[in-house]
Computed example of a mutant assay.
Amino acid sequence: MLSGFTTKFSTSSQQFTVLNRIAIEELEAWFLGDATAICQAYPKVAQLFTKRTRYRDPDAVKGGTWEALEALLKGKGYHQGGLNKVEAARTISEYMQPQNNQSPSFQCFNAGIQAFFR
């Protein structure tokens, strides 16, 4: 119990008022976790990019997730002046399907949100 608020961690019941989640990795990991959304937002990107070692685990991308997303998109002719993070976020998020996301951190966050509204 946190100052009268029941946290998800502190209760065995399904009723809680506080959900603690800390985003450790960059948000772009969550975008990389939904390859279909990226391909729909940026049609020149082939879904096969997920087979490349760098992109297999969106939460463990080496060299930074925004840099990896930028490289992926620039390689197909998008964001040639550098990744516009706000524009990319708006564009990709339109197509995201939470249940299909391959990012474990996204799934943890999403499960917490879903539990909050049950």
Score class of each variant (00 low, 15 high):
residue 105 S to E: 12
residue 104 P to A: 01
residue 107 Q to K: 14
residue 45 V to E: 07
residue 38 I to V: 13
residue 50 T to Q: 03
residue 70 E to T: 12
residue 6 T to W: 04
residue 31 F to G: 02
residue 29 A to M: 06
residue 88 A to S: 08
residue 66 W to Y: 10
residue 27 L to S: 03
residue 53 T to W: 06
residue 43 P to R: 07
residue 55 Y to G: 02
residue 51 K to Q: 15
residue 117 F to D: 05
residue 107 Q to F: 02
residue 56 R to G: 04
residue 16 F to Y: 05
residue 7 T to E: 08
residue 14 Q to E: 03
residue 54 R to C: 01
residue 80 Q to K: 13
residue 112 G to Y: 04
residue 7 T to D: 06
residue 20 N to D: 10
residue 44 K to C: 06
residue 52 R to C: 04
residue 49 F to N: 01
residue 40 Q to Y: 08
residue 96 M to N: 05
residue 66 W to R: 15
residue 29 A to Y: 00
residue 84 N to E: 12
residue 115 A to T: 15
residue 27 L to P: 02
residue 41 A to R: 00
residue 41 A to M: 07
residue 40 Q to D: 06
residue 25 E to K: 13
residue 56 R to F: 04
residue 18 V to Q: 07
residue 83 L to V: 13
residue 17 T to S: 12
residue 73 L to G: 02
residue 103 S to Q: 04
residue 38 I to E: 00
residue 78 Y to L: 14
residue 18 V to P: 02
residue 3 S to I: 14
residue 106 F to N: 01
residue 83 L to E: 02
residue 105 S to I: 09
residue 11 T to V: 08
residue 37 A to T: 10
residue 98 P to V: 07
residue 44 K to I: 11
residue 112 G to R: 06
residue 103 S to T: 06
residue 65 T to H: 07
residue 32 L to D: 00
residue 41 A to Y: 02
residue 56 R to E: 11
residue 35 A to H: 07
residue 17 T to N: 10
residue 42 Y to W: 15
residue 88 A to W: 02
residue 108 C to V: 15
residue 18 V to C: 08
residue 91 T to S: 10
residue 26 E to M: 08
residue 14 Q to M: 08
residue 94 E to M: 11
residue 20 N to K: 10
residue 4 G to M: 01
residue 67 E to H: 13
residue 12 S to A: 00
residue 52 R to K: 15
residue 52 R to E: 13
residue 112 G to C: 07
residue 114 Q to H: 12
residue 52 R to Q: 14
residue 2 L to N: 14
residue 47 Q to V: 11
residue 101 N to L: 05
residue 69 L to N: 02
residue 20 N to T: 10
residue 82 G to P: 12
residue 57 D to W: 00
residue 68 A to H: 06
residue 75 G to Q: 13
residue 53 T to M: 04
residue 103 S to D: 03
residue 35 A to Q: 05
residue 28 E to F: 04
residue 97 Q to Y: 08
residue 40 Q to H: 08
residue 84 N to L: 07
residue 82 G to E: 07
